[in-house]
């Protein structure tokens, strides 16, 4: 049964990389089921994350957000800060796709704070970029400028010319 769980996970990932998102979802749902049977929280978190990603490419953003929220919940329980940051970043981007910019800002700020805690300058730069865009969408031009300047500063530091 444990091997079946891992195999469903691998199958889901392969379908995903082939662009077959429907079968990817079906496989990761099986993987999730088996992870729950075993009480394997890490595998459960991975399945939610993979499910969220596949839903993005199916254009099912609300469903993607649900999966990412579960992944975030587990990441917090497991006290895995890097994974928590990743889930917040995914949620920020998903809410941007849904044009819910206030919620997007909430999650991108959470991502920013963790990136700063972890001294992850690349993550911090991405958070600032995202926050600048979300504030621009809301017409908060002063805030957008603040984050654009921070993004520029960090990009120079990390040598990101693009």
């Amino acid at each position: 049964r444990a091997a079946q769980g891992r195999t469903y996970g691998n199958l889901g990932n392969t379908y995903y990389l082939l662009g077959n998102f429907r079968d990817a979802v079906a496989s990761h749902e099986q993987r999730l089921l088996i992870a729950k049977e075993f009480g394997d929280r890490s595998a459960e978190r991975r399945a939610y994350c993979n499910l969220g990603n596949a839903c993005i490419f199916l254009g099912e953003f609300e469903r993607a957000a649900e999966h990412y929220r579960r992944a975030l919940q587990i990441a917090r329980q497991l006290k895995d800060l890097a994974v928590e940051a990743q889930a917040c970043y995914s949620l920020g981007n998903t809410y941007t796709l849904m044009q819910d910019f206030e919620r997007a800002i909430d999650y991108h700020l959470k991502h920013l704070i963790i990136a700063q805690d972890l001294n992850d300058r690349i993550g911090e730069g991405r958070a600032c970029w995202s926050l600048g865009n979300a504030h621009t969408a809301l017409g908060n031009h002063d805030q957008a400028m603040h984050f654009a300047e921070k993004h520029l500063e960090i990009s120079k530091e990390t040598g990101d010319r693009s």
């Binding site: 891992r6 996970g9 691998n10 990932n13 995903y16 990389l17 595998a43 991975r46 399945a47 994350c49 993979n50 990603n53 993005i56 490419f57 254009g59 970043y89 995914s90 981007n93 941007t96 796709l97 849904m98 044009q99 991405r126 970029w129 995202s130 600048g132 865009n133 969408a137």
Partner: peptide
């Protein structure tokens, strides 16, 4: 959707996401 896809930071995220899997 076409409108929001033009948010460059999201577009970049999706490009990265397309190659990203949580490996067993």
């Amino acid at each position: 959707r076409i409108h929001t896809i033009q948010v460059d930071s999201v577009q970049r995220w999706m490009e990265d996401l397309r190659q990203m899997t949580e490996v067993e």
